[in-house]
């Protein structure tokens, strides 16, 4: 049996915005159908310590994994090294690093369960949406990855749109 609760607010509430600057955005295109190489690369990565701010990926029809890793500027190396070492000759195994970048993230009540939250966010962003490098709306949180210097303007837009209870 399913229990359904109804929720609505005229101005969407968030628990506040957080900004992290000076990060690195790593983009990889990894042919994961090269299973031996991939498996060994993953094993090397798993054995090394590391932390991330955001990770997201998409598997395309050619079984290439397009992976985004947002982390501290020197933290991506332990991820990159095994991939480059274990999969050096595989065509299409590319890496791109953009640094520095900025992260703006926030969460709110039942964001992932309610329609209209993404629309509300994009409407609030207005032209700043064109500056986005990546975005993730997952569970009750929203992550926006922005070029250096862009988070301030985006933060102003979002502050004006969202309700932040004091």
């Amino acid at each position: 049996m399913e229990t359904v609760a109804m929720y609505w607010e005229p101005r969407i509430k968030t628990y506040g915005f957080q900004v992290v600057k000076g990060l690195a955005l790593y983009r990889y295109l990894i042919p994961v159908n090269q299973s031996n190489h991939w498996e060994h690369a993953l094993e090397c990565i798993e054995n090394g310590p590391n932390r991330f701010h955001l990770i997201c990926g998409q598997l395309n029809e050619s079984l290439d994994l397009s992976l985004l890793l947002l982390c501290g500027p020197d933290r991506g190396r332990s991820f990159s090294r095994p991939i480059e070492a274990e999969m050096p000759i595989v065509e299409g195994c590319r890496r791109q690093v953009i640094t520095p970048v900025e992260l703006l993230f926030f969460q709110g009540p039942h964001f992932g369960d309610r329609f209209g939250v993404a629309d509300f966010t994009y409407c609030a962003l207005k032209d700043h949406a064109n500056a986005l490098l990546a975005a993730v709306f997952s569970c009750a949180s929203i992550y926006l990855v922005l070029p250096e210097g862009a988070a301030g303007g985006v933060l102003d837009q979002l502050n004006a749109a969202f309700n932040i209870p004091s």
Partner: peptide
């Protein structure tokens, strides 16, 4: 954003979005 607007207009939730 246009897609998100269309979905919101029809009360369709998007529980997962990832963009690059």
């Amino acid at each position: 954003p246009a897609f998100c607007g269309i979905m919101a207009g029809s009360m369709i939730n998007l529980p997962f979005i990832s963009t690059d």
